[in-house]
């Protein structure tokens, strides 16, 4: 009786635990009971890091698992995938394998040929697989994170090389010469301001002298007019009046010219003030540059900033070109 009791308890325990383990395993594997999966095969030249058990995704939905990976004749790699029963395949399907997460998990995506991202390598792989045996899907591997980081590493190496070359060209001597040129330009600006100031004073003096001369001419013209009036009244011929009228007109013209000259002189004074202001500002800027203040000062006095900026521009240019040529390479990577 005791032995039968032991048998029953041990047997029940074993069965219960085993059923629990099997159920848990199937639950975690997301096995679907009562459904018979369909088997789909695909030919690849290379399958990257795909492993048995990785997810098969159709239109973003996990629809099966990779069941088997095997080398096939003529340098093919054959992947067998179990697809859930009743799953509708896309038109003209192809299989793309790619990294699914940053943790080395891969997945196989079944998608339409027209939906494949534009990529020379992928196109070349699919074109090559066109010669695969009938009844099997075509497959290609998309670049994974490791490849992208390798490319990034190469770019970083190129940037470092360019930086080194720039450092060689833009050495301390070049920086000193550039600083000296800026100092010379500053001195030149100051000389120019002084010259403008002197010329402006000369013009002022000239204008004043001219104004006095014209005033004298006007006084003389008036005196002449009076004299000629008396002569005209004495002669009564009218010719002298005509001469006086023309003289008055000439005097008026000279006055107008004097006014215009004065206006020009005032403009010159204003221009001189503006020029002084500009030169002062330029002098201040050059002074800050020389002391290494501000972005331009840092650029001049710290070669590494210039080098980094130049490297960044080169890198960005390459990235933009690469992104234009293959945008899917950057936006296809999913994290988790």
């Amino acid at each position: 009786m005791k032995r039968r009791s032991n048998d029953w308890i041990v047997g029940t325990t074993i069965i219960v635990v085993m059923v629990g383990i099997v159920f848990s395993t199937l639950f975690l594997q997301q096995a679907e009971f009562g459904k018979k999966p369909e088997l789909v095969t695909a030919h690849f030249r290379d399958v990257g890091g795909v492993q048995v058990g990785n997810a098969v995704v159709i239109r973003g939905v996990v629809s099966g698992r990779v069941k088997q990976i095997a080398l096939a004749p003529n340098n093919w790699v054959l992947i067998s995938m179990e697809i859930n029963e009743g799953t509708l395949m896309p038109a003209d399907p192809v299989v793309l394998v790619q990294a699914a997460t940053l943790f080395g998990e891969w997945q196989a995506i079944i998608t339409s040929r027209t939906a494949v991202p534009v990529n020379r390598e992928v196109d070349a792989q699919l074109a090559e697989v066109d010669g695969a045996p009938e009844g099997s899907l075509r497959g290609a591997v998309l670049p994974d994170i490791a490849q992208l980081t390798t490319v990034a590493g190469g770019i970083a190496g190129n940037v470092a090389s360019v930086s080194e070359r720039v450092r060689t060209a833009f050495n301390d001597t070049a920086a000193r010469e550039l600083r000296r040129s800026i100092r010379d330009f500053s001195v030149l600006s100051r000389d120019l301001a002084t010259a403008v100031k002197v010329q402006s004073r000369n013009l002022d003096s000239l204008a004043a002298t001219a104004r006095l001369s014209f005033a004298d001419v006007a006084t003389s013209a008036n005196a002449l007019q009076r004299t000629m009036g008396r002569v005209d009244s004495a002669t009564s011929q009218g010719e002298v009046q005509e001469i006086l009228r023309q003289s008055r007109q000439a005097s008026q013209n000279l006055r107008n010219a004097t006014e215009r000259f004065e206006s020009l002189s005032r403009s010159l004074v204003s221009t001189e003030a503006n020029l002084k202001s500009v030169v002062g500002k330029a002098d201040s800027i050059f002074g800050r540059i020389e002391r290494g203040q501000g972005s331009l000062g840092l650029l001049v006095n710290d070669p590494s900033l210039y080098q980094n900026s130049d490297s960044l521009l080169i890198d960005l240019r390459k990235l933009v070109v690469d992104f234009r040529s293959d945008p899917k390479k950057y936006i296809n990577v999913r994290i988790f």
């Binding site: 074993i14 085993m18 629990g20 383990i21």
Partner: peptide
């Protein structure tokens, strides 16, 4: 040999 996996199997189930 037989019962250790049974106990461990139950422990896996319960631990999870």
């Amino acid at each position: 040999v037989l019962m250790f996996p049974v106990v461990v199997g139950a422990a896996m189930f319960v631990g999870l």
